[in-house]
Simulated assay, not measured.
Amino acid sequence: MENSKCLFGKCPYTTAQKVFSGKWSILIMYHLSEGAIRYGELQRKIGDITQATLTKQLRMLEDFGLVSRYIYSEIPPKVEYSLTDLGHEFKPVLEQFRIWGDKYIKSIENKEIE
């Protein structure tokens, strides 16, 4: 059996798992799907994420071509993050996560009631 390095870029499941392997990557994609956002605002929306982790996750998503960074030439520098065209193609997947997540939450609530 081939290892996951050999399957990256060949197997869609291995590729997706690698691209979204970061703990916060899907949540970052969700917030960016709502529009361009500044770094500090993104960190506040996510909540319990360190600056180092957010920076690492954003760079990883940028390297994979899903997120773009725009630096305004002003002092202090203003940086905005947004989804690329490829990143926007992930929005239907995010919607399916929401639908499934809602159903799963309801199933948990139903089990607690029983």
Rank of each mutant, 00 (worst) to 15 (best):
I46E: 08
I46F: 12
G47Q: 06
D48G: 06
D48V: 02
D48P: 01
D48Y: 03
D48S: 13
D48W: 03
I49R: 13
I49N: 11
T50I: 08
T50A: 11
T50H: 01
T50P: 00
T50W: 00
Q51I: 03
Q51F: 10
Q51P: 05
A52N: 06
A52D: 05
A52R: 09
A52W: 04
A52K: 09
T53A: 09
L54E: 07
L54S: 05
L54Y: 01
L54Q: 03
L54C: 06
L54F: 03
L54K: 02
T55D: 09
T55R: 10
T55H: 06
K56N: 10
K56E: 09
K56A: 12
K56Q: 08
Q57S: 09
Q57W: 03
Q57P: 09
R59V: 11
R59K: 11
M60K: 11
M60N: 07
M60S: 12
M60Q: 09
M60R: 09
M60L: 13
L61V: 04
L61T: 02
E62G: 04
E62P: 00
D63M: 12
D63Y: 12
F64K: 15
F64R: 15
F64E: 15
F64G: 08
G65I: 03
G65P: 05
G65E: 07
G65M: 03
L66D: 04
L66E: 07
L66W: 08
V67A: 10
V67F: 12
V67M: 07
V67N: 08
V67S: 09
S68D: 08
S68G: 00
S68L: 05
S68I: 05
S68W: 06
S68K: 03
S68R: 02
S68F: 13
R69G: 00
Y70K: 04
I71K: 13
I71S: 13
I71T: 11
I71E: 15
Y72F: 14
Y72E: 15
S73F: 01
S73I: 04
S73H: 05
S73C: 00
E74N: 09
I75W: 11
I75Y: 14
I75L: 11
I75A: 12
I75E: 15
I75P: 11
P76T: 02
P76F: 03
P76C: 05
P77Y: 07
P77K: 10
P77T: 11
K78L: 11
K78R: 15
K78D: 09
K78A: 11
K78V: 14
V79P: 00
V79Y: 00
V79T: 04
V79I: 10
V79F: 00
V79D: 00
E80D: 11
E80C: 09
